[in-house]
Design a protein around this nucleic acid. Structure first.
Length: 562
RNA sequence: GCGUUCGUAGCUCAAAGGAUAGAGCGUUUGCCUCCGACGCAAAAGGCUGUGGGUUCGAGUCCCACCGAGCGUACCA
């Protein structure tokens, strides 16, 4: 159910038919393309518009105006969604929506209720969204916070659009950074028991305070018994202690953030099962690798990359790149996803071509693997840049942020912009409880409707009008605007899913809330004629439903009172 | 250098290749004896970084330049 698309298709088909009539009548030549229909930016022109006359001008060797005039005389709008066709400006053919269409909108929202907005462009195709995938070597960052909301809401949007969606967290629990984690933790453990000077902290180690806490907790549990064992054994024990702790913390933080993953995929399993080895062997069998200086190289340059890359280092270990090729091979070829989307920070954009090259070498169509790159976040407090947490003196983590900002506000703010644009997150604004805070503004509209409907519940008992034809009673321009806005949700879902831009839903809800508040101030329900009252109450109930459905996609609550 | 993302109102950002480039903030001024003022209404602000090109039509597509971020490891 997408009444915007239905209307566009109907108008295109009606204009096409009118054009065919002109061809039959001999007034126009038979050479024009199929009409393109759009919604004018400036609503005063009309509700829908077609640029058919301009599109056809060259082929028909006539002025757009002449073509439009000819087509309009044959345009048959009876029993359609439209009325009032007119030719304006250079040759735009504009129409207004008729009551039938408005009736259908309200009926659709009321009938579909919580399913209103759901469409089926996905046809159940399996899509994976992989996001956050933070290293389990430390706390999650503000960047993870943005990536988390982006991935989670994109997944929700795709679900609404009819895809079968899976959310995955890729756990980097193997490889070099885990080694460094072990070395760092080992140094902190020994320093904890023997003093700062006992060992030198590794140059490129993890310097965060949390490493000291982790080491102290380990010492509290195990005492000094790991001082006397070989270093390798000590590190192993520390990693076995530290990683699960960090992972548990990440899960806690994410659940505070209302994010749940379907799968946590551990990198280590790819090593243990020999899948990495098998994948690299496969690339070699296909002739995409060569040996040089003791390392195994992938011919990435044969797949559009600038240069080749190392898969297996001369020390025998695989690079992250090799593991990632194996991981993505697993997503597509072992688990059978049709499309895989990776949410990445913009600082990783250099990887996208390489990843695609790896998949191409395995025989996968390049557009199956998609990347959403997000720019970094700048934290502000009432306009000033915030670098460090006041409490800890260190950089602000996701957990710090959630101590201060409610989940609803954080989720909304991190998804307010397109992924590609730099994001300013103003913590002062996120806490405000007025119309300047967009979350409040939207939630307030929902709460306002709830109280109002409760208050008016007893007043429409004597309504006698035709409930199937409410548009005849909802004639105010602000009521019409509200109905058009309601009709837009399925279309917004379609576009957000098509372009991987879930922030469209935030913008959409702001506009819907705005349309409602304007209506509320200009049109009163209380005291209206019973039939009108009932129609307006239905309209308000529909707005409430759509607000709630939209907020649900964003993972934000729709409170009945605030 | 090469690659990549991005330059739109004072600020933060919108604009399926369409008509007079729109919102919010900030500034100024109004609206509650009335369903929630956590709200609404009105005013002001622009050579869309620069120069070409494609098109009936370009903020949008192509090319060059200027400026910013990021990448360009046998790190992940």
């Amino acid at each position: 159910m997408n009444l915007i698309q239905e209307a566009k298709e109907q108008l295109a088909s009606l204009v096409h038919a009118a054009y065919q009539a002109c061809v039959s009548a001999g007034t126009l030549a038979d050479a024009a393309p199929y009409p393109v229909v759009e919604i004018p930016k400036d609503r005063s022109f009309g509700d829908f518009s077609t640029t058919f006359a301009m599109q056809a001008a060259r082929a028909l060797k006539l002025s757009p105006k002449a073509i439009a005039d000819a087509v309009v005389t044959h345009l048959q709008l009876d029993n359609s969604f439209f009325t009032n066709a007119s030719v304006v400006g250079a040759g735009f053919i504009n129409v207004r929506l008729a009551d039938v269409w408005y009736d259908r909108v309200l009926a659709a929202v009321m009938a579909l209720n919580t399913n209103y907005g759901r469409i089926n462009v996905g046809n159940g195709q399996k899509v994976m969204v992989e996001f956050v995938s933070a290293n389990p070597t430390g706390p999650m960052t503000i960047g993870n916070a943005r990536g988390g909301v982006l991935g989670d809401t994109l997944a929700a949007v795709l679900d609404m659009a009819g895809y079968t969606v899976s959310r995955e967290f890729y756990l980097n629990d193997a490889g070099n950074q885990v080694e460094v984690f072990g070395q760092s933790l080992e140094a902190r453990y020994m320093q904890h028991l023997q003093g700062e000077e006992a060992v030198i902290f590794p140059e490129d180690g993890y310097h965060g305070e949390y490493m000291k806490t982790l080491a102290a907790d380990f010492a509290a549990q195990e005492g000094d018994k790991f001082l006397s064992v070989p270093s390798e054994q000590r590190r192993e024990a520390l990693i076995a202690f530290g990683l699960p702790r960090n992972i548990a913390q990440m899960k806690t933080d994410l659940s505070r953030y209302a994010i749940t993953f379907d799968t946590w995929f551990a990198e280590s399993t790819l090593h243990q099962s020999g899948y990495v080895q098998e994948t690299i062997d496969l690339l070699t069998e296909r002739g995409h690798t060569y040996e040089l200086d003791g390392a195994l190289w992938f011919k990435a340059s044969a797949f559009g990359c600038e240069k080749d890359d190392v898969l297996r280092k001369s020390n025998g270990f695989y690079t992250y790149y090799a593991v990632d090729i194996a991981y993505h091979r697993n997503k597509f070829f072992t688990r059978g996803f049709d499309t895989c989307i990776d949410i990445l920070g913009a600082d990783h954009h250099g990887h996208t071509l390489r990843f695609k090259a790896g998949m191409a070498a395995l025989g996968l169509a390049p557009d199956k693997l998609r990347f959403v790159l997000m720019q970094l976040v700048r934290l502000l407090r009432d306009g000033d840049v915030v670098k460090m947490s006041k409490r800890t003196g260190k950089s602000i983590t996701l957990s710090d942020l959630l101590d201060e900002i409610p989940c609803d506000a954080a989720r909304f703010f991190f998804n307010m912009r397109q992924p590609d644009s730099h994001l300013d997150f103003d913590m002062g604004l996120a806490l405000r409880e007025d119309s300047e805070n967009p979350v409040y503004y939207i939630q307030y509209a929902h709460a306002r409707i709830t109280t109002m409907l409760t208050l008016l519940a007893g007043e429409n008992a004597s309504a006698t009008g035709d409930a199937q034809r409410p548009a005849a009673l909802l004639t105010h321009e602000l009521e019409r605007a509200l109905l058009r806005q309601l009709a837009l949700l399925p279309e917004e879902i379609r576009l957000a899913a098509r372009d991987y831009e879930p922030s469209r839903i935030n913008a959409y809800l702001l506009e819907l809330a705005n349309a409602f508040h304007r209506f509320y101030n200009a049109v009163r329900l209380k005291g209206a004629e019973p039939d009108v009252l009932r129609a307006r109450m239905d309209l308000c109930a529909a707005v409430k439903t759509v607000l709630k459905n939209g907020l649900t996609v964003l993972g934000i609550t729709a409170p009945d009172a605030m």
